[in-house]
Amino acid sequence: MRTVSIPATHLLYLHGFRSSPQSMKARLVAERVAQRHPSVQWWCPQLPPSPREAMDMVMRGIANWPRSTMAVIGSSLGGFYATYVAGMTCCPAVLLNPAVDPARDLARHIGDQTAWHDPQQRFYFRPEFIQELRTLEVGPVTRPERVFAIVAKGDEVLDWREMSARYPGSRIRLLDGGDHALSDFETTHLDDVMAFLDPA
């Protein structure tokens, strides 16, 4: 299947639930952009717990980005958010073990939570956030050729069958093993992610 790459001039990275811009994958992409593609505008915001507030902030932040040369990468819950962004902008998206039905999956996480990368940071995941997630569901991807999803069968958090079935017609890299964090991201996947986005 032919993929459609663009020379990305603006790159957005969206982290997962309880995660942050300090995640391993976010830092690796940030370092790659800084070292090899310094002309690319990079943004990896700390997302608030509220899905509505998170996407309002993101859409305001990219409001003036060129739709023809922007791209988004999203991991886990960030993959769900990236699917929304791609649906709103038609930009290319790379999805790393993307959450498919976070409204269902995160319902059991209502209550006090700690941040992965700083356990001293706490937040409350509110019941109304579940409906906010449902509001962000965009349905089938309208430009499947502009999506590259990396899905690990060994993901201990999300179901690989749901993830791979969510993006028919897209480029899917299905890993026989792996884990939710894609621990081999730097050595096995980073080059292909950047090649798909073809940054300037």
Rank of each mutant, 00 (worst) to 15 (best):
G78K: 02
G78A: 06
G78C: 07
G78N: 03
G78M: 03
G79V: 08
G79P: 06
G79H: 05
G79A: 10
F80M: 02
F80E: 00
F80A: 00
F80R: 00
F80S: 00
Y81T: 03
Y81G: 01
Y81M: 14
Y81N: 02
Y81V: 05
A82T: 09
A82E: 05
T83A: 15
T83F: 01
Y84F: 13
V85H: 02
V85N: 04
V85D: 05
V85G: 03
A86P: 05
A86S: 15
G87L: 04
G87S: 12
G87T: 07
G87H: 14
G87K: 05
G87A: 10
M88G: 00
M88H: 12
T89M: 11
T89V: 11
T89P: 09
T89K: 06
T89C: 10
C90Y: 05
C90F: 10
C90K: 11
C90V: 01
C90Q: 14
C90S: 15
C91E: 03
C91Y: 03
P92L: 02
P92G: 02
A93H: 07
A93W: 06
A93R: 08
A93N: 10
V94W: 00
V94N: 00
V94T: 04
L95S: 06
L95D: 02
L95Y: 03
L96F: 08
L96S: 04
L96P: 02
N97W: 05
N97V: 06
N97Q: 10
N97R: 07
P98R: 06
P98F: 09
P98W: 08
A99K: 00
A99E: 08
A99F: 01
V100M: 11
D101W: 02
D101M: 05
D101L: 03
D101F: 05
P102S: 10
P102R: 07
P102G: 08
P102N: 09
P102H: 04
P102M: 11
P102E: 10
R104A: 11
R104T: 14
R104H: 13
D105C: 01
D105W: 05
D105A: 02
L106V: 07
L106G: 01
L106S: 03
A107Q: 14
A107D: 12
A107Y: 04
A107W: 03
A107E: 15
R108E: 13
R108V: 13
R108N: 06
H109S: 13
H109C: 11
H109K: 12
H109I: 00
H109M: 12
I110H: 04
I110W: 06
I110R: 07
I110D: 04
I110Q: 12
G111C: 08
D112A: 14
D112G: 01
D112L: 15
T114E: 15
T114N: 10
T114K: 15
T114R: 15
T114L: 13
A115G: 01
A115N: 14
A115E: 14
